[in-house]
Design a protein around this nucleic acid. Structure first.
Lengths: 150, 150
DNA sequence: TATTGTTATACTCTATAACTATA
DNA sequence: TATAGTTATAGAGTATAACAATA
């Protein structure tokens, strides 16, 4: 029908649906997380697991509940996550001295080594994000704007 | 121990974990979606349902698969979503003239009225996002940066 | 053969309630 | 009483496979 190849199907009108903050935020987050999963496939590490490892590495000896809360994960759901990391020999629970109900979380020696590798992958991944955004200033602008939405 | 109230517990070191694009994106998206859910509670409408209604409103007669694909929803999962909207009398499936396998999607009269109300809520919601971001220019900057990440 | 809509199914993420052992 | 960790469970969202009807 149309004279131009590939244009037989009229384009959908999407602007009023997709040119909104929430929608774009969702699509961008899904896209970034998909690339994150691909980048961390070799290490078999998911976003929440990487965050937990990094946070424990920077704050050894903190209680499960503290780590979970910072990451926005319910303590009930954090149990399976930390079980997974512990099962791989990356983290360990030790009895907290001052409170015998609590588990203090630490990286194992293997976990610290593993985190080094993961941080290197993450640094590359972040560098790729910065390139896509158009440079470090654009990244800072994005983080600032995202912070205003929380 | 500390002289300043409320600072007995040392702050966690979070920067290296949370000052990265993926993490901030996730937190911002969760925060915005939570507010979206609250804003649309009275209409009992979720983000994906609003997007579907708005897209059908702007593109009546499109096939299920077209609408689903634009929204990034698998056609298998879109069935339950559209069943929900149809069950509420907001949309209807009609046999597509040119392809008897396909369902062409339309808003009902009630659906069109409902979408008007939903668009008004969304406009208020977007205005709130813009205010949080610091103005329309900041919003445009954000959408531009988010687009670069997809 | 390929595609549309559908069902069934499974896996992840998230949320709540309830239990235990401590505090 | 309240809190830390845990278990069980249920609800979303998402992914794939397979089927009937049609192209």
């Amino acid at each position: 029908m149309s004279a131009v190849p590939g244009t037989d199907e009229a384009m959908l009108e999407t602007g009023s649906t997709t040119d909104i903050v929430g929608y774009r935020l969702r699509r961008a987050q899904l896209s970034v997380f998909q690339r994150f999963l691909a980048a961390f496939e070799a290490l078999d590490l998911r976003p929440a697991e990487y965050s937990a490892l990094a946070l424990i590495g920077d704050n050894p000896g903190r209680k499960q509940t503290e780590i979970a809360e910072i990451l926005g994960i319910k303590r009930a759901n954090f149990v399976a996550l930390i079980n997974g990391l512990e099962g791989r020999g990356l983290t360990e629970r030790r009895a907290a001295r001052e409170d015998r109900r609590a588990n203090a979380l630490y990286l194992t020696t293997d976990g610290a080594r593993f985190l080094e590798k993961a941080r290197a992958v993450q640094d590359d991944f972040e560098a790729d994000c910065i390139t896509r955004l158009g440079g470090p200033k654009a990244r800072d602008t994005l983080l600032d704007l995202l912070g205003r939405l929380c």
